[in-house]
Design a protein around this nucleic acid. Structure first.
Lengths: 347, 347
DNA sequence: TTGAAAGCGCTAACAC
DNA sequence: GTGTTAGCGCTTTCAA
């Protein structure tokens, strides 16, 4: 298992290392004869340059900026920060510098400002969650024209704009929830899809999930479910829920499209409504407690921590070792109940 | 964001790079005075050597051998081979050489032979699935005394023998299955735990899963389930199943502790038994088909591909970049239904 | 006990 | 067009 070096190839071809390097990187200034000779050898041995040596030569500290909504305002994002920190820790001794930036989850203005601030730093790459469609496309454009590599996570925006996306298939995620609901709820049952939209930016997410959910039930043969959609009023979610529930006392099965299932469950408990089935998203502490107590049947895990962690490792390994960045990575849709919860929390 | 090099430190301390290196690696032959000076600086800047430069210097091809049961004899292991191949592909250009070895899943003799063969190659590390308790401990001992790093996956053996284990908590996995069963099966129901033990080596696995499963139900307050255990006769599994089912026609809910759920389902279909609920393991093609057709309610995913892939990356990054090898990595227990199946298959 | 120097594989500047 | 050379950060040998 001999690994060939550029020196071996140079000797074999009877040229110098410099010439071999020129051939490898197609930098021209090589005679036809030398080119052919070297190319032939390269192909024969399927030469791959040692990425470690390449990286050492290129001793530059890569700057990567991560942009996401402030986890203090929406704790869905807390694990994303954990993922970033894990990457920082893991690559501490390498030549990478990772900086975190937060914006207000409902302020396009703060999103803009943060991006302008980052642009001034001219980082090598930006990893961002493009909550706001239009503003994100603008931001990505200006990053790219400054030669900055842009990767995205969590929110998929229709684009050839970004190099890479790490996240989940939200339509499929709605189908998963529907299938679970179908397994735990008898036929002839009313099912309620609840949208808690703390920031309008989630609208697309919620729609895709709803579509998947409804499509699943529409596709059933002898199906007979009434599916309602409830968009919880942001101004006063609790009252909005109470009103709905009091006028729909047959509603016992709920699919919450955001991480707010705890909010719904607390209201249900307040109204003393029994035998409800709730399926929601995200392993927040308050959700986890209710899952353990069987007040929530299933949570769907969107792997927020993994999303940022993987997004970052793609970038880092690209810079350090010339690895290709996958253009799209859709993570598995995790189904979580009270018993496998712990195995997700420990990872 | 300046990264310090040993040259910087040497200059700061007024000594040579050699001396700094001696301090860092505690190789002695350093005067008290120099030692203190350098140590102080190292601590102040929290110096971490550049692992890329270290690795480049150490230009050695690391040999890692992977030992697992022949996937032709038990296709549970096919994805494990995929995981190995993924790691090979990903680290193709680095100085690592990964070799695969198979043994007969029910032949301790072939396990022994393979290990002897590997011992002769004196690899740097071995990653193995220690199916056979006793023989594995012996093998690991001889590897370790030859200075070979040993990591394990899939089967946990009670040991400080191996450096690392990647796998799942099987007891918890049984609990997950039980919880799922509990959600989909009415009370007052007979539940059957089915052990298909194609090789005796699985015995411990199955026991742990059974224990978790039973413990879950025993822990319920107003529970009222009859749980039977069926150990399917290896000599003639089909007949053995038919006999059992004909004398237990109340049995409609089944937990299959191995990847053979398809086998049970086919028999159930042959007997034309309806309304059965089956929970099993592993995303084999035959299981997946039945999951899609709703003949299996849930499959539990043990992430075999990830197990070998992670096991290998731990070893490789340890050798190449001095990363620490986690002594135990328990992967999330995946709950799979017809809708999130595809998201697992694509990963 | 210490410093100087060579070299790992690769790149890029420079001289011819 | 081509070869030579210096140097990335670190380790290790050798001479002092």
């Amino acid at each position: 298992m001999k690994k060939y070096t550029i020196k071996d190839i140079a000797e074999q071809a009877g040229v110098s290392k410099g010439t071999v390097d020129r051939v490898i990187h197609k930098r021209g200034k090589v005679s036809q004869k030398a080119l052919e000779k070297v190319t032939k050898i390269l192909e024969e041995i399927d030469y791959k340059p040692n990425p470690i040596a390449q990286s050492l030569k290129n001793n530059k500290v890569y700057l990567i900026c991560v942009v996401l909504p402030d986890p203090k305002e929406d704790n869905f994002w807390i694990p994303c920060v954990d993922g970033v920190n894990q990457a920082i820790e893991e690559f501490r001794s390498f030549l990478v510098d990772i900086k975190l930036f937060f914006y207000g989850p409902s302020s396009t203005q703060s999103f803009k400002e943060v991006n302008e601030q980052i642009l001034k730093l001219t980082p090598d790459a930006v990893l961002l969650s493009p909550l706001f469609q239009k503003e994100s496309i603008n931001a990505i454009k200006s990053f790219r024209s400054a030669g900055i590599v842009v990767s995205t996570f969590n929110s998929q925006i229709d684009l050839e704009q970004a190099v890479s996306f790490v996240g989940q298939d939200l339509y499929q995620s709605g189908r998963v929830a529907a299938k679970l609901m179908h397994t735990i709820v008898p036929d002839h049952h009313d099912i309620v899809i609840c949208h808690f939209s703390e920031s309008l930016s989630n609208a697309i997410h919620m729609q895709q999930k709803e579509k998947g959910f409804r499509d699943y039930f529409n596709g059933l043969k002898g199906a007979d479910h009434t599916i309602l959609t409830l968009s919880v009023d942001q101004a006063d979610p609790d009252q909005s829920l109470v009103n709905f529930l009091e006028s729909n006392n047959k509603a016992l099965a709920f699919f919450v499209t955001t991480s707010k299932s705890y909010n719904l469950v607390e209201i249900l408990q307040g109204l003393n409504r029994k035998n409800t089935k709730v399926i929601g998203y995200d392993l927040l502490d308050r959700n986890n407690d209710l899952l353990r107590k069987d007040k929530i049947s299933f949570l769907i895990h969107q792997s927020p921590k993994t999303q940022t962690y993987i997004g970052l490792t793609y970038l880092i390994e690209h810079f350090l070792f010339n690895k290709e960045i996958p253009s799209k990575k859709l993570l598995p849709i995790g189904i979580v109940n009270s018993e496998n919860l712990i195995t997700y929390l420990e990872n």
